[in-house]
Design a protein around this nucleic acid. Structure first.
Length: 583
RNA sequence: GCUCCCGUAGUUCAACGGAUAGAACAAGGGUUUCCUAAACCUUAGAUAGAGGUUCGAUUCCUCUCGGGAGCACCA
């Protein structure tokens, strides 16, 4: 049980005693430590409902409140109830936390299966910087959900069946450079794609030719399927290399092509059930009048002063399917085959309208009980403040960006690392460079745009991954210098210095932070927490010598060091970031 | 035109409707015979504007201004 849960439960009993009925109460970590460690606004909220005086209610509640030896409570302002936790409570918590493999993180997702759909690059095009967000964010959310006990299925729903394959196939047939393909397959595929894309843009007949290649592929044409297989195979090599470096793995790679067989029957069924109908030669799903407010209806749009249909198209007039069809089929598969209770789509915010439609369709086809989330994120901007554009083709490739990050980290390592061998240093540079990129992503609010600025990303001080990693290294270093075996599990810390209490206070919050991330799918809350914890540790480290202290104090502080290292390592692992032993 | 997202220190970011808006970078001043200075301590600096709801608003509502995105055969 976390401190918040403990306090809330005791407070709830006190309210029940006073009011004669059970009521919901809230307790949150105090924003300002001068007021205590935790606070509750419930007296104000409940007094308002009952039209009584909030301070008077709070006083009655505090009189009825049994905090045991947790700490003390008092009233402030218009009726805040502030809790001050006793140092020995924090000490006992630290001891218990150290003995707990979960470090105090509760299990909140047991029995629930969630599919996390993220990364999903288009095959045959190298990943570019724009793919960082979905990949890193999705991986972290999957790790966090797994930690909380959810059954997690990660699925890389790659774009391996869409329009770009028509283009690539056309270019493959018309201007493949076999030697270049041999030498550097990924670059040749990219060249083919760019060539076709540019040509199609400029020339109507080429656009049509590409479209026909796609139709042939989707109809099962042998030659086109052969080319397709070859492209997938080659692309996988490049993708795997990047996922390896990023330490990202998927349970499944069920791309759009995996659902090809399901699409035609799906559309027939939608037609038969009256959920879709023909329009201008295409098959579409229209508004069914729910919700009543047309502005909230994803199938309506305002045009020339009136609300007009904005249907979801499931079959094009040429008979081809588009990704709306695939997404519906994919969702059904995830429910039927994987028994998923939830699906989280970690996808660019620009697709929010599409997901509103998809989720509305899910309701209509009987999947309304699924918890479907579009976990949207903002745009990565260039240093000019404008979005990096996908179509232009001149986006920095992800692999190059990672190389640059590692190179910059290598410079820093060369200047300040205490590691001896070149091998260790190279390994550290790789770790720090990748960590810096990941942490930059995860420390931001997912909906905000951010400027992709390598220099800032790699400023290896302040609010960065190396700052956190360095805290762990400092913890570990102490234990390397310790020349005796101590059974820390037997030690009950005694907290006297403010820096010790402050550190213990933050350690106790870990179990409260991790579940809260999934309330709005925001790993940046964890990133912020870890920075605060690391700051508390660094301050403690400066103020409280460990190894030179008397035995009892030393052992007490060793518990804090060990627990800090464990929480930081665990928290960083939920962000997909590893820690070095030394740096 | 309509819909959605976003406007917080010079810069990059925080803040379930809570109290005196919190960090980092940059700027100024300090700290190392002492466990890793990728650190610590310290000074200065911000809610775009106007209304409204509320005991209480950066947060919710309305409008204005500014930035971005989306608007059926692309994904």
């Amino acid at each position: 049980m976390t401190l918040i849960q403990d306090l809330a439960s005791r407070l709830s009993s006190a309210f029940e005693t006073v009011l004669g009925e059970s009521v919901a109460v809230t307790v949150v970590a105090a924003a300002d430590l001068r007021f205590g460690d935790y606070q509750s606004n419930s007296a104000m909220a409940l007094a308002k409902q009952r039209k009584t005086n909030p301070r008077a209610l709070a006083e009655q509640v505090i009189a009825a409140l049994d905090l045991g030896d947790l700490g003390t409570a008092d009233i402030a302002g218009p009726g805040f109830i502030n809790f001050k936790i006793a140092p020995q409570t924090f000490a006992a918590r630290a001891k218990a936390q150290l003995a707990d493999p979960r470090l105090g993180v509760p299990v909140t997702g047991e029995g629930r299966t969630v599919v996390v759909d993220f990364s999903a690059p288009n095959v045959a095009k190298p990943m570019h910087v724009g793919h960082i967000r979905s990949t890193i964010l999705g991986d972290s959310l999957a790790r966090i959900a797994r930690c909380l006990g959810y059954g997690v299925i990660t699925d890389n729903h790659i774009g391996d069946w869409g329009t770009q394959f028509g283009m690539i196939t056309w270019a493959w047939k018309n201007c493949l450079d076999a030697q270049a393909l041999e030498a550097d397959p990924l670059q040749e595929l990219l060249r083919l794609y760019r060539h076709a894309s540019d040509s199609a843009k400029a020339d109507e007949t080429i656009r049509e030719a590409c479209r026909l290649e796609l139709v042939k592929l989707q109809a099962g044409d042998d030659e086109n399927l052969g080319i397709w297989h070859r492209c997938i195979e080659l692309s996988r090599i490049g993708l795997d290399r990047i996922y390896d470096r990023l330490d990202v793995a998927f349970d499944h790679w069920l791309g759009e092509s995996a659902y090809n067989e399901a699409l035609a029957p799906l559309v027939e069924r939608l037609l038969a059930d009256g959920l879709a109908r023909e329009s201008e030669g295409a098959i579409c799903i229209f508004s069914n009048g729910v919700p009543e407010d047309p502005a909230k209806d994803p199938f309506l749009i305002r045009k020339d002063g009136e609300w007009t249909d904005f249907p979801m198209m499931v079959r094009k007039s040429d008979g081809g399917f588009n990704y709306a069809t695939t997404d519906i089929a994919t969702l059904e598969f995830r429910r039927n085959e994987w028994k998923a209770d939830a699906a989280w789509y970690v996808v660019d915010h620009r697709q929010s309208l599409h997901f509103q439609q998809l989720f509305a369709v899910a309701e209509r086809i009987g999947l309304g009980d699924m918890d479907l989330r579009h976990i949207a994120f903002g745009t990565i901007l260039g240093t000019d403040g404008k979005p990096l554009k996908t179509r232009s083709g001149d986006l920095p490739q992800l692999a190059d960006v990672l190389d640059e990050a590692v190179a910059a980290a290598a410079t820093a390592v060369a200047e300040r690392s205490r590691l001896d061998t070149d091998e260790e240093r190279a390994e550290l540079a790789e770790l720090i460079g990748i960590s810096a990129v990941k942490f930059t992503e995860l420390a931001h609010h997912r909906l905000s745009d951010y400027v992709f600025d390598l220099d800032k990303m790699l400023a290896l001080q302040g609010d960065t991954a190396p700052y956190l990693q360095n805290s762990v290294v400092r913890c570990r270093s102490i234990f390397r210098k310790l020349d005796e075996e101590i059974d820390l599990a037997a030690v009950t810390p005694v907290l006297e210095q403010e820096a010790e209490i402050h550190l213990a206070r933050y350690l106790a919050r870990y179990g409260e932070i991790v579940p809260s991330i999934l309330e709005d799918h925001r790993p940046n809350l964890l990133a912020n927490y870890l920075l605060e914890l690391a700051r508390a540790y660094h301050s403690f480290y400066e103020a409280c010598p460990v190894l030179k202290a008397d035995t009892a104090v030393r052992n007490s502080r060793l518990v804090l060091c060990d627990l800090t290292a464990k929480v930081l390592v665990h928290g960083l692992s939920l962000l997909g970031i590893r820690c070095p032993e030394r740096m």
